[in-house]
Design a protein around this nucleic acid. Structure first.
Lengths: 250, 250
DNA sequence: AAAATAGTGTCTATGAGACACTATAGT
DNA sequence: ACTATAGTGTCTCATAGACACTATTTT
């Protein structure tokens, strides 16, 4: 804001005397919901905790916000350091701050969600030697909201802190967003078929969609561009590959 | 979360030794956008600052988050203490945390927006002897987003900190929400005519709506209930008064 | 040839906009 | 009587769903 530059001598004196230590202050962290879609399931990156509290439970990647670091920069730092990911879709989700959500001390966490295509995140995690992604199960329909369950190898995982609720908020958010914003392509490789795009939408929404009207809606949205190339080795008539125009415009 | 109750002796020892002072911590505040609609204009409560920084500029009501207070409780406290309002629609908006947004020190602010009907907020402010509401002007269409301008008595006001941006985010949010959620009634008295409801939608969206389809859409939404009463003294055929079903259900 | 999915064309149902018309208050 | 807005009925147009049909690949 340009008004911040308006500093007269009275204001300079005030700033010098201001005591930043006058109030108790909570810790502030960022936590990340890194989502991908595959095999008609949503998956998130969760890390097993090796320290108390919630030792052995699974937690979202996160970290403290540096004193001279913006919230978004902190989220990007965590995304890179903990998942090896850069240049992906990242958006603020919600801020959670119940006084007892962390038993150690007051921690307010600003959450972000990232959408990544499966091959990209699997490659990045393999380079870091990390655990595989965790499958999410959403025990509610539509945008009702609520906590989400997480599974690995068929077994339900215990989630640390209020992270089940945070994951639920992320699913609720993208379910709302997929209907009016082109976020499906964030979960796909650069070129993709309409059937792949429909599968991603169906995965996000947790329900089947009509093939005909989905095609018409996507093609008439003006967001897609045919590449003139077709998929290969698919055991049926190959579909044309498309790309998102807004991505090529960046 | 119920998992928080799982405390063995090892975890108890760990919690005792945990040093909450180990990291520098930012200040955390809540700031409130208290919105109302009247005369085809959006209005917000802004308070003139009598201290540095931004002395003389106008700021959103806000306050520090107490160490044992949830974010929503802090927002409700500010709403009551600074505007005299209780039991109104209140929802988290966004968290702003650029390192230099407050020149004194690092302040991260969790913003909330409240929707209040005009008579209610005018009465409440009058009881507190506060300045009148400030008129907002949104120099962008639809949900493009961006900062908002504020006017009082025809003169544009200087806004403190990043509050023009926060106001812009609030307008963007309700523009998106009014199309799929029944938030119009939050800005109206308990009973209202369809024309009043349309005026509120038009004010929020910043554009005129078709009368016929608006009536049909509202009546077929199942959210409205006719009261059997009609407005009076209006200089034309009086309209029936409606109320929102979801309000009576609470 | 069979299986599977891609892609096109057409019919129908639904909802929004446009418009015409009647109804009822205040002035 | 005139003005302004409420409220109803009908027509048209755009879009979603349903369905039928053809096209093209692998097995």
């Amino acid at each position: 804001m340009e008004e911040a530059g308006v500093v007269d001598s009275e204001e300079a004196r005030f700033l010098e005397e201001y005591d930043a230590e006058a109030f108790d202050r909570p810790s502030v962290t960022v936590d990340l919901v890194i989502l991908t879609a595959s095999h008609y399931q949503l998956w998130a990156l969760l890390l097993p905790r090796d320290a108390h509290p919630f030792k052995g439970a699974w937690a979202l990647p996160g970290g403290f916000v540096g004193m001279n670091e913006s919230l978004e920069d902190a989220a990007k730092r965590v995304l890179k350091d903990e998942a090896g990911l850069e240049e992906v879709f990242l958006e603020q989700l919600y801020t959670f701050g119940e006084p007892r959500r962390d038993p150690r001390t007051r921690v307010i966490t600003v959450t972000y969600y990232a959408l990544v295509d499966e091959t990209q995140v699997v490659d990045a995690l393999a380079r870091k030697g990390l655990e595989p992604l965790v499958r999410l199960k959403t025990p509610w329909q539509g945008e009702a909201g609520g906590p989400v369950e997480a599974y690995e190898a068929g077994r339900q995982l215990e989630l640390a802190f209020d992270h089940a609720e945070i994951l639920g908020m992320a699913v609720k958010r993208i379910r709302g967003k997929v209907n009016y914003a082109p976020i499906g392509f964030q979960l796909l490789p650069p070129t993709f078929t309409l059937r792949q795009l429909q599968a991603v939408h169906e995965t996000v929404l947790g329900q089947r969609l009509n093939k005909d009207s989905f095609r018409r809606r996507m093609l008439s949205s003006g967001e897609l561009e045919a590449t003139g190339e077709w998929e290969t080795e698919v055991g049926h008539r190959p579909a044309e590959l498309y790309r998102f125009k807004s991505l090529t415009a960046i």
